[in-house]
């Protein structure tokens, strides 16, 4: 068990290194001289020389990488070309906003999907099952940013119940999850975001619960006179760890994949930051944001794996 955790952590290290190499290479993927990608157009010769020395563009690429990695490890992700602010600061603020909606979305998705998936598994083949299965197929087939637009059309344009975009007058500083004036801005993004995880979590709940229900010990429980509610409770408890793991992974996907939804709702999270960086060809911001998001994704996966092993002793990993 401890061995497994150690091995799993050890395994995440080369992956993270690979991620940093990829992010470092992004600068070289961009067309043109990498230096110009890092500088504002109106940079003075002085600044150019300064940046050049700081980034070490005169040195061989592996050395450049190590220097970059060293700075990144100490929290220095460079400066934004657009705003001249430190990339790390920008990412940190945006990250908080993304965490708000991803967490809400994944909790919402889990609650809905787990109930619907369990019902679908229990009435295997029935109407509820068909509805649930259709919803889950829709969830993964739908372009979720389009779904966001549809929600805006319905709730903001036609019904005028909820604001269409933004984070409220106070921006991210003034946002409070305890106040309706703030929360109402988050509702549509969260609903949109929950669409895909609802489909995926429901599918895995359905298969996990129906697998437990089809096992012999459930027959034994029924034979011993256990009521259906208790049988279902048993099945749910057995299916839960696996579904929670799926939920954890989905959280990672939402964190990293928020760009489209945040763009639709102009929600000032990492996704919007990325979109801005792309529009302005602000490569340091692009690089920094992607690095942070990818590392978070790696860590989420790692945490899910370890927790799952800890919670579910049946999962034995050599």
């Amino acid at each position: 068990m401890l061995n497994y955790i150690l091995r799993r952590v050890a395994y995440a290290i080369p992956i993270s290194l690979g991620v940093t190499i990829f992010c470092f290479a992004l600068v070289y993927l961009a067309p043109g001289d990498p230096l110009t990608r890092l500088l504002p157009d109106d940079a003075t010769a002085e600044t150019i020389a300064l940046i050049k020395a700081a980034y070490g563009f005169d040195k061989p690429i592996p050395i450049q990488y190590l220097n970059w990695l060293g700075r990144a490890l100490t929290g220095d992700l460079g400066q934004s070309i657009q705003t001249n602010r430190a990339v790390a600061d920008e990412v940190l603020i945006a990250l908080g906003n993304t965490i708000i909606i991803s967490t809400a979305a994944v909790i919402l998705a889990f609650t809905l999907a787990f109930v619907m998936g369990t019902v679908a598994a229990y009435y295997n083949g029935g109407v509820a099952d068909r509805v649930a299965t259709s919803v889950s197929v829709l969830g993964v087939s739908i372009p979720n940013y389009w779904f966001g637009i549809v929600l805006i059309i319905i709730f903001a344009v036609n019904l005028r119940w909820l604001p269409a975009t933004g984070m409220g007058p106070g921006g991210s500083e003034g946002f409070s999850i305890w106040e309706w004036s703030s929360v109402k801005f988050a509702i549509l993004p969260v609903l949109t975001m929950a669409m895909v995880p609802i489909g995926i979590i429901m599918r895995s709940t359905r298969s996990a619960v129906s697998e437990v229900l089809s096992q012999d010990f459930v027959q034994t429980l029924r034979a011993k006179g256990m009521g259906e509610a208790a049988v279902l409770r048993h099945a749910v408890r057995n299916a839960l760890p696996g579904v929670l793991a799926v939920m954890g992974l989905q959280f990672g996907y939402l964190m990293g994949g928020s760009i489209l939804i945040e763009t639709i709702f102009t929600w000032p999270g990492t996704g919007s930051l990325l979109n801005q960086a792309i529009l302005n060809r602000d490569i340091p911001v692009l690089q920094g944001t992607i690095l942070v998001l990818a590392l978070i994704f790696v860590m989420t996966n790692l945490a899910v794996d370890i927790l799952q092993t800890a919670v579910d002793p049946r999962i034995k990993r050599g």
């Binding site: 993270s16 690979g18 993927l29 990293g256 994949g257 990325l274 692009l286």
Partner: peptide, 17 residues
């Protein structure tokens, strides 16, 4: 290493760069 990125993020990273 490529699995360490959610698919949309990877696509955006490469296309964006």
């Amino acid at each position: 290493v490529f699995y360490a990125f959610p698919s949309i993020l990877l696509a955006v990273a490469i296309s964006g760069a």
